[in-house]
């Protein structure tokens, strides 16, 4: 519909919209994150919800302890190999539509701890990530920026066609395989559906 006509009608008190716009408008303004802190970044996440940065402006202050009531998982910190199965399990328990923000260097790639034997080198080896925010830890402003990026992403989602969200696609897979702790490493070391590169499990020669 013509934008000018829409504005003119709006002045007359008639709101014209599409279902998609209305739908996405509702979704993007009430993203409820899961109350789920992993490490250092969680403190900045808490700081973001407090008075100074006030995440409530984005309709996202309602932190839900249960994954079943949450729309957004903020991976706020280092995911260790011991924790990764639980993170994937929590993600599986979330209802669609669900989004993931990888907050901070550790959640993206292992960050400063990437050499660690017990550190998962990026959560996107197991679950899809929508927004990555760099930083160690990212400032609260960066988390707000990630929220805005996520809102833009939601706004641009069509309800039909190839780019439609997973929950409107009957063939989409909802469950993601949960890795199992093995004798030396997690098995498998990555989910080939989201992370197409094979990673050798077990150990190779010593690093130089």
């Amino acid at each position: 519909m013509d934008e000018h006509l829409k504005i003119e009608l709006g002045k007359q008190g008639i709101v014209v919209t599409t279902l998609q716009e209305l739908y996405n408008w509702g979704r993007r303004n009430s993203i409820w994150p899961m109350q789920f802190g992993l490490a250092c970044c969680a403190i900045e996440m808490i700081a973001t919800t407090m008075a100074r940065f006030d995440m409530a402006r984005f309709g996202a202050e309602v932190f839900r302890p249960s994954p079943r009531q949450a729309d957004l998982m903020i991976i706020s910190g280092t995911v260790t190999k011991k924790m990764a199965p639980q993170v994937v399990r929590l993600y599986n328990q979330m209802a669609e539509p669900r989004y993931v923000i990888a907050m901070g260097a550790c959640a993206i790639s292992g960050g400063p701890f990437k050499q660690g034997y017990n550190v998962l080198k990026g959560i996107d080896r197991y679950i899809p990530v929508d927004v990555h925010i760099p930083g160690c830890p990212p400032r609260p402003e960066a988390l707000l920026e990630a929220f805005m990026a996520l809102q833009k992403k939601i706004d641009a989602q069509p309800l039909t066609g190839a780019g439609r969200p997973r929950f409107l696609d009957s063939e989409a897979r909802g469950e993601f395989p949960i890795p199992v702790p093995g004798e030396h490493d997690l098995e498998p070391a990555s989910n080939r559906g989201v992370w197409p590169v094979e990673i050798e499990t077990g150990t190779k020669g010593p690093r130089d």
Binding site: A39, T80, N118
Partner: peptide, 30 residues
């Protein structure tokens, strides 16, 4: 325990004394 075992000690033994200083920030991150 162990869900946040980030191998701080092992990493510190593989790097110089000064390079461990930023890692100590992330022990008790408050």
């Amino acid at each position: 325990f162990g869900y946040l075992h980030r191998n701080h000690e092992k990493i510190a033994e593989q790097t110089s004394y000064l390079a461990s200083m930023p890692y100590t920030d992330r022990l008790d991150y408050f």
